[in-house]
Simulated scan of single mutants.
Amino acid sequence: MPLRSLADQPYAHLLQPHPGPPRQDGRYDTAHFEGLVLEGAQASGALFLECAFTDVALTEVRLRQARFTEAWLERCRLVACELVESEWQDVTAQGGLFAGVSAYGAQLRRLTVRQCKLESVNLRGAVLRDVVFEDCQLRDVDFGGAKLTGVTFPGSSLEQVRFGGATLAKTDLRGARRLELPDGHEGLRGALISSAQLIELAPQFAQALGVQVRD
């Protein structure tokens, strides 16, 4: 069963409030970061194991090569943050905002992103395995050159999303409410789409292939 609240986490009763912001190369186990407002902080290389983040606002925070394992993020706002080459495993992000985030080369495994807004997020060259974008809004998200395996988008809206040069396997786009791709249609090779989506994308596929359609 998908976890819907922090209380559902098996480590919820072990969480302890953390008094300050995370530090560079810090190691955090069952720490609860709540209500933090950080700008320009440095937390690259930090490890978060069975940690929770609620109502946290991060602006221009560096989290390069940070690792999140069995973590929970709820109502968090990440704006212009650096998550380059970060690692996420068994993580749930719910009701949050990711805007202007650089996460190229990131490793995302068994990640659930629920009711979040992702805008201008760079995931170029990232590896996504068993990732679910549920009821999300993805706008100007770049999956260029990324590897997506077992990724789904139930109830999500994809606007100006790029898949150019991506490698897709067992990636299911049928549940997406909207599928708008400005370019990189060849990157959809290996994806599963519905017949309705195919009809909607047909003019773009034809243009990408250099096919003229005239009646």
Score class of each variant (00 low, 15 high):
41 A>E: 09
115 Q>E: 13
87 E>S: 12
63 L>S: 01
45 G>M: 05
41 A>G: 15
49 L>N: 11
7 A>F: 10
41 A>V: 14
182 P>E: 14
28 Y>L: 00
79 V>K: 08
141 V>A: 13
94 Q>N: 09
58 L>Q: 01
211 V>D: 12
14 L>V: 05
89 Q>Y: 05
186 E>P: 05
193 I>F: 06
133 F>D: 01
29 D>W: 02
74 E>P: 01
173 L>Q: 02
4 R>L: 14
161 V>K: 00
184 G>M: 04
143 F>V: 08
144 G>K: 03
87 E>Y: 11
188 L>S: 02
115 Q>H: 10
96 G>L: 00
48 F>H: 03
92 T>D: 06
183 D>H: 12
176 A>D: 15
15 L>P: 03
74 E>H: 00
169 A>E: 14
121 V>Q: 06
40 G>F: 05
166 A>E: 10
169 A>V: 12
179 L>N: 14
172 D>Q: 07
120 S>I: 02
86 S>E: 06
201 L>N: 11
175 G>W: 02
156 S>Q: 07
15 L>F: 14
212 Q>T: 06
201 L>C: 09
3 L>Q: 11
129 R>E: 15
2 P>E: 12
156 S>M: 09
98 F>Q: 07
92 T>L: 12
71 A>L: 07
105 G>K: 06
154 P>T: 10
201 L>E: 02
61 V>M: 04
81 C>Q: 07
194 S>V: 10
202 A>N: 03
202 A>M: 13
207 Q>P: 15
67 R>P: 04
91 V>L: 09
204 Q>I: 14
124 R>Y: 08
62 R>S: 02
131 V>E: 00
210 G>M: 14
152 T>E: 03
16 Q>R: 11
208 A>T: 05
8 D>N: 13
99 A>K: 02
88 W>D: 00
56 V>K: 00
194 S>Y: 14
136 C>Q: 03
214 R>V: 08
198 L>K: 06
105 G>M: 10
89 Q>M: 01
10 P>F: 12
95 G>V: 04
59 T>A: 15
117 K>Y: 10
186 E>M: 15
48 F>Y: 05
102 S>E: 11
131 V>G: 00
112 T>N: 14
171 T>M: 03
189 R>D: 15
121 V>P: 00
3 L>V: 13
43 A>Y: 02
50 E>C: 15
91 V>P: 00
126 A>I: 10
26 G>W: 00
110 R>Y: 08
32 H>T: 03
13 H>G: 15
117 K>V: 03
32 H>R: 10
66 A>T: 02
162 R>H: 12
80 A>E: 07
91 V>Y: 00
77 R>P: 01
127 V>N: 08
75 R>L: 08
101 V>S: 00
21 P>K: 01
87 E>C: 10
183 D>N: 13
1 M>G: 04
198 L>Q: 08
30 T>G: 04
159 E>G: 13
139 R>A: 14
72 W>K: 12
85 E>S: 05
15 L>M: 11
1 M>E: 13
122 N>I: 11
79 V>D: 11
55 D>W: 10
25 D>P: 02
215 D>P: 11
